[in-house]
Simulated assay, not measured.
Amino acid sequence: MTELNPTNQQILHYAGHFLQCRGYNGFSYKDISQKLGIKNASIHHYYPKKEDLVAALLEERRKNLAISIAQMMESKKSAREQLQYYFDYALQEFDEGKCICPPGSVIIDFQELPEKVKNQDILLLDDILEWLANVLQNGLEQGEFKFLDTVESHSEMIVETLMGARLLSSIKGRKTLVRSIFSIKLGLGWRD
């Protein structure tokens, strides 16, 4: 991956924002260049094609997720604390106007996407699901959670619920996302 100098970081920042607000086909290099006050050619210098940019962005999200997971493990956060972090992150992104989560931002166009974007999206989604399954398993073992289905199916349900809730919240408001998070907690036997 290209070294992340300040311009590259800004390109990824705005690409991520547009991707999560508009989806893959909802933005162009022109949108990013206008925000940064640079020419499209400057973006093409780092990312010759849009697929290169979006694949790099999703890869960067995977790296950031891995860092966050390592920090939570190092600080010995409980399963509830880790899951609350995930919920807080979803709420924070929604408050920033990002109504679509990173892996969900390309789902509508998924079949038409270049393979490198599809692959990075699947890897990011798999990383999230694997982390959630581990959190749920630890929560069951520590008595923090109580549910009957497998940790794999429950982690999928959590991701599916949050993806849908974020989209619906873009129309119905933040309270929809908050209610969905509350419902997920109830389904885990999580009583505050």
Rank of each mutant, 00 (worst) to 15 (best):
A41T: 15
Q120T: 13
A79G: 07
F27H: 03
G37A: 04
I43W: 05
G139Q: 06
R80I: 12
A133T: 09
N119E: 15
I11W: 04
Q142C: 11
D121T: 15
H154V: 15
I11P: 03
L58W: 01
H17W: 09
T150K: 02
A79S: 14
E59N: 14
G187I: 03
K116P: 01
E144K: 12
F145C: 03
R62T: 10
A70Y: 06
H44G: 00
L57Y: 08
Q20D: 09
F147S: 13
D95W: 00
E51K: 08
R61P: 02
K76S: 11
L177Y: 02
Y47M: 05
A90E: 08
E130Q: 15
K50C: 04
C21H: 10
L129E: 04
I171N: 09
Q82Y: 00
G97H: 07
G16V: 01
D88L: 13
I122N: 10
R166M: 11
I184R: 05
S169N: 07
E160D: 15
N119Y: 12
E112L: 11
I107K: 15
T7S: 11
E60K: 13
L167I: 10
K98I: 10
L186V: 12
V159Q: 07
A15S: 07
L12H: 06
K185I: 01
A79E: 07
K185D: 09
I43F: 01
E112C: 10
V151R: 09
Q142I: 00
E160K: 15
L168H: 09
L129C: 09
E130W: 09
L19V: 08
R80S: 12
K76N: 14
I11M: 02
G26C: 12
K146L: 15
M1S: 14
N134Q: 13
I11N: 03
A66E: 15
K172Y: 11
G16W: 04
L162D: 01
L65Q: 08
D109G: 05
V159I: 13
L36K: 06
Q34N: 14
F147M: 12
Q142Y: 07
A56W: 01
Q9S: 11
R191K: 14
K77C: 09
P48R: 04
H17E: 14
I158V: 03
S155Q: 02
P103M: 08
L12I: 05
P48W: 05
Q120N: 07
D88M: 11
T176S: 06
Q111K: 15
L65H: 09
Y85R: 10
I158K: 02
S169L: 02
F18C: 01
E156G: 07
M1N: 11
Q34S: 14
G189C: 05
A70V: 02
H13T: 08
E93V: 01
N40F: 00
E74Q: 06
R80Y: 01
N119V: 08
I181M: 04
A66T: 14
K116S: 11
Q9V: 00
I32H: 01
L167G: 07
R62G: 12
M163V: 10
G23R: 03
K50W: 06
K185N: 06
L65N: 04
N40C: 07
S180Q: 07
L148G: 13
L113T: 05
K76A: 13
I128T: 02
N119P: 00
Q120L: 04
Y47W: 04
M163I: 12
L136W: 09
E160A: 14
L162N: 02
E60M: 05
D149H: 00
L4F: 00
C21M: 13
